[in-house]
Design a protein around this nucleic acid. Structure first.
Lengths: 140, 140
DNA sequence: CAGACTATCGCAATCAGTCGCAATAGAGCG
DNA sequence: CGCTCTATTGCGACTGATTGCGATAGTCTG
């Protein structure tokens, strides 16, 4: 059963636009912004409106095919739902960005599960702070 | 030495606009959005442009008087720099928002310090996930 | 206090994203 | 295939936030 059938089985429709958006996200190596997805889709199909891209990303996320996360404060980034969960550490001083594995995230999540019965998705937002190469108390 | 002198001592200027923005943030009970700050400032001084408010928040953050954090994916919220650090747990299913104390955050931060020598500010972004009252695998 | 230096301001334009709405077009059914 | 139902689309307007730029006005120096 293809993606189209899965989508139809859930009462949604498989449109050209939806297919193109999903395809673009799948094809992208890592994270990609909605804006970039729109640019790529519109490169071949200029009549497709950016708002359609945004709406499809939302729909595809609901359907479980794509996910979004926030690595800087500004833009939302999208990726395939199946990619291995990993977190991001962003240094507020030098802007350096490090990926971290699921083990550390799981260890941290365990704490929230124990103390607050909360099932955290720590990969959703980057964790900001000061990286190992920057002084912890900067410029004072 | 007042705030004005401190600011001047660091080569910045103390303007009416900057004073009003700082004052509004100090006066606000908890977090407040930039938009709301702009609205309040403009209520009495309509000639002050929203962009000035945004730029002053940035400047005041750099100067250490205010801080911002993100509790949902979209809006930035501002508060006095001195408020006790605390985290937010946001349920992606029901939207429920819980404040958590610094102890849990510190325990989690310890892990990142140990494994990645990264000094995390876990209060900066809300942690999304599924709260205790919602099923962990929703609507399938 | 006058003059110079430049941080900051207001404005207009832009960016990333959202929303309401009328028109379009997938999907199920006979 | 033709019909109907409604999810989805494109458009245009709009929101919250940001930026470039010329004008304004704090601050320091003499």
């Amino acid at each position: 059963m293809g993606v189209g059938d899965e989508i139809r089985a859930r009462g949604r429709r498989m449109t050209v636009q939806r297919g193109l958006v999903l395809d673009t996200v799948q094809r992208a190596r890592h994270h990609i912004t909605a804006d970039e997805i729109a640019r790529r889709v519109r490169a071949k199909h200029p009549q497709i409106d950016p708002s359609t891209v945004y709406r499809n990303l939302e729909a595809l996320e609901e359907l479980g095919y794509v996910t979004h996360s926030h690595v800087d404060d500004r833009v939302t980034r999208w990726h395939r739902a199946e990619v291995a969960p990993h977190g991001h550490l962003v240094c507020r001083s030098c802007g350096d960005e490090t990926e971290i594995g699921p083990a550390v995230l799981e260890a941290m999540a365990r704490r929230l599960r124990a103390d607050h019965a909360f099932e955290a998705d720590l990969a959703h937002s980057a964790i900001v702070g000061i990286c190992r190469r920057c002084p912890v108390v900067p410029s004072c």
